[in-house]
Design a protein around this nucleic acid. Structure first.
Lengths: 194, 194
DNA sequence: CTGGGAATTCAACGGCTGTAGAATTCAACG
DNA sequence: CGTTGAATTCTACAGCCGTTGAATTCCCAG
């Protein structure tokens, strides 16, 4: 059983493919992004991508891993107590989008609208990992509705600031936005029943 | 100069093509929708569409006309005064989406994310027709930022309720949602400077 | 009844897509 | 140095797309 053959390589090129895939999926969304463009971005032959990841779907799933771990950040946001939770949540949300991890989120949100696969993926993940944890954290009625309302405000903010790029939101500072939007989130999370 | 030849027809089939186009663009978005599927939905040969509307872009522009006229509904919403404006706005927004006109909006929001053409179209229209009118209506500082914040909340609501179809939002009543979200909108519009 | 012209269909082209499989390169080993 | 087998590339296929221009249908005027 000879342990021979070409050894080094795939670690490097796998990473470069994933990087180019994130860029491309973020810029174009799942459908418009093509394996040929991703391969060109990675300086690689297009056939290498199905070879490593099985299919276009495979490289998408490998590329858009959720860039933050809810099991970590949710307790960290809750730790200082409920007061100011809304503002902290908005600030954390904007910091994540403005960080390098934002490209993964852009790929996800762009793809969610065009691909049922991506929509299902995100809905399952958010329901299980995020809404679940938030539901047990806030000890109030209708936790799913409350968490969903929070999501509407945050998703809308991401859509207009990062996807459509509305000028007034693009040029506003994180602190300013947190000051405006934080209280809305806070109310969705803590306001007693309507 | 003989006025002869086949006369009736196009009015009917033009309408049927536009209807099928709205359905298809709403279900698939601009990119995924195909002329062949639209034609099949209208019971018509695919070549008729470029023939009547010039191109795929042409039938899209003809199909997704904004289904409500801001010049009409904005004064109507403002007329009872500023108190309760937030709730009225949310209610009107949801009524429009739940009406037959909602399919045009779905086509628009689905397409905005995949097509630069649609994004540019919507951004220009909203900036000019909606934000402008709202800005003069509310006599406060930073009218564009305020109107954009309103838009984030409404767009996010539409995304999660009608595009991703999150259960908690899909099954909530219009009144319930207006009760939760209305105050946020109200604050964005009328809260004195932060 | 007959011809003309609009309405509609047919057939096809060129381009792009994801993907499969054969062919080739090349670093590491005996 | 030659063999080996993984890493990579080449070639090609089948399918769908928007669009085109010629062919056909069919209503209506004369």
């Amino acid at each position: 059983m000879p342990r021979t053959g070409r050894r080094p390589g795939p670690a490097r090129t796998r990473e470069r493919i994933l990087g180019a895939a994130r860029t491309q999926f973020g810029r174009e969304g799942y459908d418009k992004a093509t394996l040929r463009e991703i391969a060109a971005g990675a300086g690689v032959d297009p056939a290498l991508i199905p070879h490593y990841f099985g299919s276009k779907e495979g490289v998408f799933l490998a590329a858009v891993e959720f860039p933050v771990d809810p099991a970590l950040f949710i307790p960290r946001l809750l730790e200082p107590g409920v007061e100011g939770l809304g503002e902290r949540l908005v600030t954390f949300f904007l910091e994540t989008w403005d960080s390098p991890a934002g490209s993964s989120l852009l790929a996800l949100i762009r793809s969610v609208v065009s691909s049922d696969l991506a929509a299902e993926l995100l809905r399952e993940f958010v329901t299980r990992e995020v809404l679940g944890r938030l539901a047990v954290a806030i000890q109030l009625d209708q936790p799913q509705l409350r968490a969903s309302l929070v999501a509407t405000q945050l998703v809308g903010l991401a859509m207009l600031r990062y996807v459509i790029k509305v000028e007034a939101l693009k040029s506003a500072s994180r602190e300013e936005l947190a000051g405006w939007i934080g209280p809305s989130i806070q109310r969705y999370l803590t306001e007693p029943v309507v």
